[in-house]
């Protein structure tokens, strides 16, 4: 069987069933036995943690100021011990309800204090619960812009305001995506254009407008939030979509049972992601509030055949 891009996502645990169904290659040897693995257990990590790779975390729908946000925040900080990520991407809904000065403290500065104190940058996108003026809040690194891009090594991130995708923003994306010479182009935004969520589901209007741009401009991976759970979608038109909207809120049992789009879903607890991009591979690990790794794998960059083999 020819090794295609679609066949290369490697998975663990219960995902192996889906993996087999999609002709995926098994995960590398070091990651065997991942179900049950915990943060803090160095043998559990599926991330290669190599020098000069791009390491970051993904959190979404965080701004509750509640217990779960603080618990995930602590785990996120603890994870730095074994995986020194350089920055954190935020998938929007950075602040629910009040958006006053004390809310910034309670819903952002305090739960992530240790991370902020370590000078790790957060890069936020706006969600439908966010005051657009959050873009002027310096720790969100939006530089006053509703949509923007930033580059880290071989990776360029395109941060979109999916709450208001007016033509001017689409025109901007049409301009910057093709111009980017980054090896990896990773858009992220609040609303998922593919989702198995019962509450919201896929944002089809948005998909109509921006999916062709993703497809035609070498996008490999897209991150989103909005749905209060974790979902990894089966590749859609060759692109891997992740929804991480459960880093504080949780919509328990909201992933449609039997959804043909779901490669892996987790809607029973809060979660966050750790991601590492090393050359032509993107490694990811999704961690529940309990510390348990609930999903992990490798996404190859388009046009590459990295030849991941079991035991390699």
């Amino acid at each position: 069987m020819p090794v295609t891009r679609r066949t290369l996502l490697s998975l663990t645990g219960q995902c192996l069933v889906a993996a087999a169904a999609e002709s995926l290659l098994p995960f590398r040897a070091g990651a065997q036995g991942l179900p049950g693995a915990h943060i803090g257990d160095p043998n559990a990590s599926t991330l290669p943690n190599v020098k000069d790779s791009i390491k970051f975390a993904v959190i979404g729908d965080t701004g509750t100021g509640g217990r779960e946000q603080y618990q995930v925040g602590k785990l996120l900080n603890d994870a730095r011990g074994r995986f020194p990520y350089e920055f954190v991407t935020m998938m929007g809904d950075n602040m629910y309800g009040g958006q006053g000065p004390s809310d910034f403290v309670k819903k952002f500065e305090t739960p992530y204090k240790s991370i902020l104190d370590a000078n790790i940058n957060f890069y936020a996108t706006l969600g439908n619960h966010d005051d657009p003026a959050q873009r002027f809040y310096k720790p969100f690194n939006m530089d006053g812009k509703r949509y923007y891009s930033f580059r880290k090594g071989d990776v360029e991130f395109f941060v979109l305001d999916s709450t208001y995708m007016a033509p001017v923003q689409v025109d901007w994306l049409k301009d910057v995506l093709p111009k980017s010479n980054a090896k990896w182009k990773i858009p992220y935004m609040h609303h998922p254009i593919y989702s198995s969520g019962e509450k919201h589901g896929s944002e089809e209007d948005l998909r109509t407008l921006i999916e062709p741009l993703f497809r035609d401009n070498g996008v490999d991976v897209v991150f989103a939030g909005h749905e209060h759970f974790y979902e990894r979608l089966k590749p859609q038109q060759g692109i891997y979509y992740f929804t991480e909207g459960g880093s504080a809120k949780l919509r328990e049992g909201n992933i449609r049972v039997g959804s043909a789009m779901t490669a892996k879903g987790f809607d029973t607890d809060n979660s966050f992601m750790l991601v590492e991009i090393a050359k032509d591979q993107m490694f990811f690990e999704t961690i529940a509030r309990t510390g348990k790794v609930i999903d992990s794998g490798i996404v190859p960059r388009h046009g590459t055949t990295p030849g991941i083999k079991a035991g390699s």
Partner: peptide, 14 residues
């Protein structure tokens, strides 16, 4: 503050 900024469909915005 309590009201979400509901998304106006992009195709309508067009």
């Amino acid at each position: 503050d309590s009201a979400a900024l509901a998304t106006v469909p992009p195709l309508l915005l067009n």
